[in-house]
Design a protein around this nucleic acid. Structure first.
Lengths: 143, 143
DNA sequence: CAGGATCCGTTTCGATACTG
DNA sequence: CAGTATCGAAACGGATCCTG
């Protein structure tokens, strides 16, 4: 079938971001990796209010294709797969921070501790995420 | 606990942002208002690669309901309606900037002048947007 | 003509059942 | 555990039509 690709990426660089992140789940997946250290399919399923398994599988595949995350088989347990943020993925931390701060300013939101931490020491907060990521396997629950 | 069908807004404040902005068009509409001074239905139609009119109408309605934009009738020309960013809307400028910079860093993007300007003087860039917006408040058209 | 609303075929989503 | 398969529901895109 003729798959006519739309010219999403033309014009402003924002288009690329929207193409990659412009849906209901992608950013939430990335958030769960950054803040909760989610790495497995099951982690994500439990983290959300029921994302459908097929949609999750599709989003993970997409994010991998875009180079935002990478997939690795667990060397010990073949049943487990580990999803990890790439450099490109971890670089989304500032985007996430801005979105959270915006929502906190203008919407009724939960988790005021997280927001307070971001506001108080934003750079430190982002540095912490990056550090955690560099340690690789860290499963710290920052939430 | 009474679990709603989709508790989008529970948990991290990011959920609210994703609910409001997590689709293919909303952020692009906001970008066109910020960067191009788009205010009319027609402006948006021309700005994109053919967004369907029903989808555009729906997104404008949604954004208005969320308080991100507001709709006003043109006092001079009754045929025209003007869409303007609210304070809440203009406060999205940092989110936009981060997304553009992220894409510029990791994707092939166009409009390097814009990116360069953002990088060089980010705060100034955002201040310029805000200033433009304040000048446009109350006026019928911005350009 | 500007700003939509309506109809309609196509695509994607969401929920659940099922499988390696 | 980590996904597919399936199917009805919702959203999308395009064209057209309507209204002031």
């Amino acid at each position: 079938m003729g798959k006519k690709k739309r010219a999403w990426r033309s014009g402003c660089p924002l288009n690329a971001s929207v193409e990659i992140l412009g849906d209901r789940w992608s950013l939430l997946i990335i958030r769960d990796m950054m803040l909760r250290g989610a790495t497995t399919f099951k982690d994500f399923l439990e983290g959300f209010e029921r994302i459908a398994t097929n949609v999750l599988a599709d989003r993970l595949k997409r994010l991998e294709q875009f180079g935002v995350i990478e997939k690795r088989m667990d060397t010990r347990d073949g049943r487990k797969t580990n999803y990890k943020l790439t450099q490109k993925g971890i670089d989304l931390a500032p985007v996430l921070t801005e979105m959270v701060l915006w929502a906190a300013e203008h919407e009724d939101t939960e988790n005021p501790e997280l927001v307070a931490m971001m506001k108080k020491d934003r750079k430190g907060f982002e540095a912490g995420i990056r550090e955690e990521w560099e340690r690789g396997r860290g499963k710290a629950t920052m939430r």
